[in-house]
Design a protein around this nucleic acid. Structure first.
Lengths: 216, 216
DNA sequence: TAAAAAAAGGGGGTATTCCCCCCCTTAATT
DNA sequence: AATTAAGGGGGGGAATACCCCCTTTTTTTA
């Protein structure tokens, strides 16, 4: 029952890559690569001129003039029905997060197998999104940087204190909440400073967030 | 070419739910629900007795005795080939993150359509994972809580100050880095306190992290 | 072009944080 | 019986953070 094909735009400033990608994607059944752009600017002016609108855009992340995130944000804002699949060489956390926040419906590394790309395009078209395990893990682990004292076991009361520290409370206020004297609270602070190898409250806050002791 | 069915275990302490789920899943082609457990403990002892190992486990998150995260962690550690699909009523950020960190290959809300479950089981079996858009958004947006002054535009120098604040630096040190007098730095602090409606440095740090001005 | 806002620097005071000591009790170890 | 760990409480002081009020210069913008 051969439906109308999924129309695809490709945006990538490596012409060799984009043209070979066009060939590859066109070879998949039911896909039609209508346009190929070398830059974010190009697809923007193309769409501004009220030309045809694609179902899916394969968007390179790192482009010289108008970058991937910016382009993605523009597409999201002006053509929210378009599903953007981000394509990237590396898996830079900031960029992954940036692209997804900008509205990308998926994030693929360029070293994937053709079959995965085909699957991803179909998924993003049908279900509206396609997230690989790697990307999700990147999001999850985007907190395991820094040299965190990871092998530290925090006790219940310490966790309580830590959670309260991650808020605009003074130690006096924390003491009230925890039903302790301010001085005892300071003891917790001091022992945590040592345990977690930090020097200020800010350090505690960063630790708590990185370790997902508190979720923002 | 009818392959051997995907074997599935269900773990859920709501018997009514788990048994109806068993019926539903069994009705999907090529799925076989071999065992149903009422608790994490039960599947653990079952597997410890070297009984059959399933392909996929549908795991309830909130269970009375041995909880979902704990169970998932045990499965991940002892039977890494088993794909765990977490099932949950709500989409609590901490729990989503906890489950995925514990090794779950997917996270589904219990109010999904049967078709989605079928699709998810197939995906998790074939590709090893299945993440819904909601879950990914939960991870992404796990920062858009709180009443952030979102419509604030920060100037370059303010951003610089803000980024430096998210570190264990005193204002004196920040002043050195920014080549400003400590007093000027304090002016930035004050104006940001107003703009961002926070009362302490901690507030600034939380804002910067939530708004991904700094990525941890 | 005059007014407003932004950028930089500052005084002086109070509150809080941070740091190094100290003490007591209770419960587990040895 | 003595030691060690864990939880709770404290003093005092120096450093830092926080707050309000101020001046000057430059840049925007109305």
């Amino acid at each position: 029952m051969s439906e109308s094909p999924i129309t695809i735009f490709i945006v990538d400033d490596h012409k060799l890559f984009s043209s070979s990608l066009k060939g590859l994607v066109s070879s998949f059944s039911n896909f039609k690569v209508s346009e190929v752009f070398n830059d974010g600017d190009e697809i923007v002016s193309f769409l501004e001129d009220k030309n045809s609108v694609p179902d899916v855009v394969l968007l390179d992340v790192k482009m010289k003039r108008m970058g991937g995130i910016e382009t993605c944000g523009w597409l999201k804002k002006n053509f929210p029905t378009i599903k953007v699949l981000a394509l990237s060489m590396e898996e830079d956390e900031e960029i992954v997060i940036g692209m997804l926040r900008a509205g990308a419906k998926g994030y693929l590394l360029k070293d994937i197998n053709p079959g995965v790309l085909e699957h991803a395009i179909n998924e993003v078209y049908k279900n509206g999104f396609y997230y690989t395990e790697e990307v999700t893990n990147t999001l999850l682990n985007s907190s395991e940087n820094g040299s965190l004292k990871n092998n530290v076991v925090l006790k219940e009361r310490e966790l309580e204190f830590l959670k309260l520290t991650v808020s605009e409370r003074t130690y006096k206020e924390i003491a009230n909440v925890m039903c302790l004297s301010p001085k005892t609270v300071e003891n917790y602070r001091e022992s945590l400073f040592e345990k977690l190898e930090v020097k200020t409250r800010i350090g505690l806050v960063l630790y708590a967030i990185k370790e997902k002791i508190v979720i923002l």
